[in-house]
Design a protein around this nucleic acid. Structure first.
Lengths: 106, 106
DNA sequence: AAAACTTGCAACCAATCGGTTTCATTTATA
DNA sequence: TATAAATGAAACCGATTGGTTGCAAGTTTT
């Protein structure tokens, strides 16, 4: 079961959990209170995010605090950068084409 | 069937198609040549991306050229910005806490 | 020691996903 | 005009998803 941060972001509930944990590390119970789904459903979302190393856990007595691994989000940014670079080169190519057309005119 | 650009990005094949189309608009057939899946499978990926308005089509005879709507990608960036802002405020809060601790010491 | 709390895991379920094969339609070409 | 090409849509399939309920295990609290 290959996990991927893009998959982690695909679900709206998980995105909301990420934003929650971006502000403050929390336990599954307190996270679940924010949504209208069961504690176990939240637990499954946490599992998905843990599997792609987006979350780390810290046991404190019988509670577990989940921390967001903010660095992992850079993978998204990295992909977006790659994308933007391609767009940029596309425009460079277009510029080149337009320049050549201009030359021909002369 | 609510579509979402985050869903569009969730599949690795679709991400590859996006990068392809970022360079150059293409027809389903030419896209399919790049992958080891059927043309129809590519067609389904295109459908998903069209449904969230990430692609637009341009009919040219019996061919259809698919164009990437690059603006749509900004929704991802927008969400990422929101995320980064929360992280920033978290550090501000941390700074505040550290400052208060320092004051107490005095 | 017993009861309560916090959690993860397994079993189950309907819906969706990513792929296939088959077919119908439209457009270009022989 | 018959044939070939390009595409989308539908039916089907096994795997995965996002949810549920029930349960077991560890930790506090009484």
């Amino acid at each position: 079961m290959r996990r991927d941060i893009f998959q982690a972001l695909a679900d709206p509930t998980r995105r909301a959990i990420i934003l929650l944990l971006a502000v403050q590390s929390m336990t599954p119970n307190t996270i679940a209170e924010e949504f209208h789904i069961s504690r176990q459903a939240v637990s499954k979302h946490i599992k998905v995010m843990s599997e792609c190393e987006l979350l780390s856990q810290e046991q404190k007595g019988r509670e577990i605090y989940y921390h967001l691994q903010t660095d992992k989000m850079k993978e998204i940014e990295k992909w977006l950068e790659q994308f933007k670079e391609l767009i940029a080169t596309r425009f460079e190519q277009l510029d080149q084409v337009l320049f050549q057309l201009k030359q021909k005119k002369k």
